[in-house]
Simulated scan of single mutants.
Amino acid sequence: MDCSVTNALPKPKTISVNGAVIAREVIAREVQNHPAEKPVLAWHAAARALVVRELLLQESRRLGIEAEPLRDPEGRSETPEEAAMRVLIEREVVTPAPDEAACLRFYQQNRERFRCGDLYEAAHILIAAPRSDMTARTRARATADRILSAARDDPGLFAELARSQSDCKTSAENGGRLGQLTRGQTVREFEAALQRMRPGEFAIAETRYGFHVVRLDHHAPGQVLPFELARERIADYLATGVQHRALAQYVSVLACRAEITGITLAASASPLVQ
């Protein structure tokens, strides 16, 4: 078969692997597992996945592999075919575990990936206005500016202003305090405002909800996990990457030995068993 990469796949008529036909209705059922922007792309992805499955099944039968299906903690069991493919891959696709040097090198090159999120303590006063109503947004901004000026002149007024002016009723009852915040707990615009502030500062953050008069009380920068705590996670990540590449290469070898009709299985994008 042609193992070269292709971007234009012909619509399959009859797809087969060494004479074993993959029925169109089987491909149609598989499509749900391969979401894509266009139905034709989902169809081709499903067809390629089934071609890979057939390659692995035929190879497991050629090698006479039989395996006891495993059962997961929820009681679901592999099919005999799934068990045979699993054992085939375990036997034929052997990948070395990443050593200490490889893990340390990855850690040193990607230290920011192992940083715990920053911790903020903040309070706010929300002047709500829908984004689609420019008149309301203009009024809300003017109100927020007045509150900001008052809070800067007398920081002790902030809690009372929150109780009387804020449209965020939950935090208003607590003087505007939001408690401790980490990444992802607030909308993107509010989080960006916190990142620009220093403890003790006041600022205005514009979000989809309106305008927030923000007070930042504390900021604890996130710490980078020491290598000893990150090593196991790094090893798992590196091992998974190596295994995926090795499995893709193994599938490519099987594909090049086989007679596949109706579809091109690109070597660089061989779909793996899901």
Score class of each variant (00 low, 15 high):
residue 59 E to W: 15
residue 177 R to G: 05
residue 181 L to S: 06
residue 60 S to R: 12
residue 63 L to Y: 13
residue 204 I to H: 04
residue 232 E to N: 04
residue 58 Q to Y: 10
residue 69 P to F: 13
residue 107 Y to N: 00
residue 240 T to C: 02
residue 265 L to Q: 08
residue 59 E to R: 15
residue 144 A to W: 10
residue 247 L to K: 01
residue 77 S to A: 15
residue 193 A to V: 11
residue 236 D to L: 05
residue 58 Q to P: 01
residue 274 Q to V: 03
residue 12 P to C: 10
residue 268 S to W: 05
residue 16 S to D: 08
residue 96 P to S: 09
residue 89 I to D: 03
residue 40 V to H: 14
residue 101 A to Q: 04
residue 207 T to M: 01
residue 170 T to V: 06
residue 105 R to K: 04
residue 56 L to W: 08
residue 142 A to T: 05
residue 153 D to M: 13
residue 4 S to D: 05
residue 67 A to L: 07
residue 40 V to N: 14
residue 232 E to R: 02
residue 152 R to L: 14
residue 154 D to G: 12
residue 60 S to D: 00
residue 191 E to M: 12
residue 217 D to C: 08
residue 131 R to F: 07
residue 273 V to H: 13
residue 212 H to C: 00
residue 34 H to T: 00
residue 174 N to F: 12
residue 136 A to L: 08
residue 76 R to M: 07
residue 251 V to L: 13
residue 264 T to P: 14
residue 32 Q to T: 02
residue 158 F to W: 10
residue 175 G to L: 04
residue 172 A to Q: 05
residue 199 P to W: 14
residue 147 I to G: 06
residue 225 L to F: 12
residue 228 E to R: 10
residue 78 E to M: 14
residue 28 A to Q: 07
residue 140 A to T: 02
residue 140 A to W: 08
residue 158 F to D: 01
residue 169 K to F: 07
residue 226 P to A: 14
residue 63 L to E: 14
residue 268 S to M: 03
residue 153 D to Q: 14
residue 235 A to N: 03
residue 135 T to D: 05
residue 245 R to H: 09
residue 237 Y to C: 03
residue 52 V to F: 11
residue 138 T to D: 09
residue 140 A to K: 04
residue 140 A to S: 02
residue 140 A to H: 02
residue 112 E to F: 09
residue 197 M to E: 03
residue 141 R to V: 00
residue 261 T to Q: 02
residue 19 G to T: 08
residue 80 P to W: 03
residue 46 A to F: 08
residue 190 F to M: 06
residue 234 I to D: 01
residue 109 Q to G: 00
residue 57 L to K: 11
residue 242 V to Y: 10
residue 113 R to P: 03
residue 4 S to K: 13
residue 197 M to I: 07
residue 7 N to H: 15
residue 73 P to M: 08
residue 205 A to W: 07
residue 157 L to G: 15
residue 83 A to C: 04
residue 35 P to M: 00
residue 23 A to E: 05
residue 29 R to A: 11
residue 184 G to Y: 13
residue 175 G to H: 02
residue 113 R to K: 14
residue 183 R to Q: 15
residue 92 E to R: 13
residue 238 L to W: 09
residue 121 E to W: 10
residue 112 E to M: 11
residue 249 Q to C: 14
residue 261 T to R: 07
residue 184 G to V: 04
residue 65 I to R: 09
residue 269 A to D: 11
residue 29 R to M: 05
residue 132 S to Y: 09
residue 79 T to W: 11
residue 112 E to L: 11
residue 231 R to N: 09
residue 165 Q to D: 01
residue 204 I to N: 06
residue 105 R to S: 01
residue 97 A to C: 08
residue 71 R to T: 01
residue 242 V to D: 10
residue 161 L to M: 13
residue 209 Y to H: 03
residue 112 E to V: 00
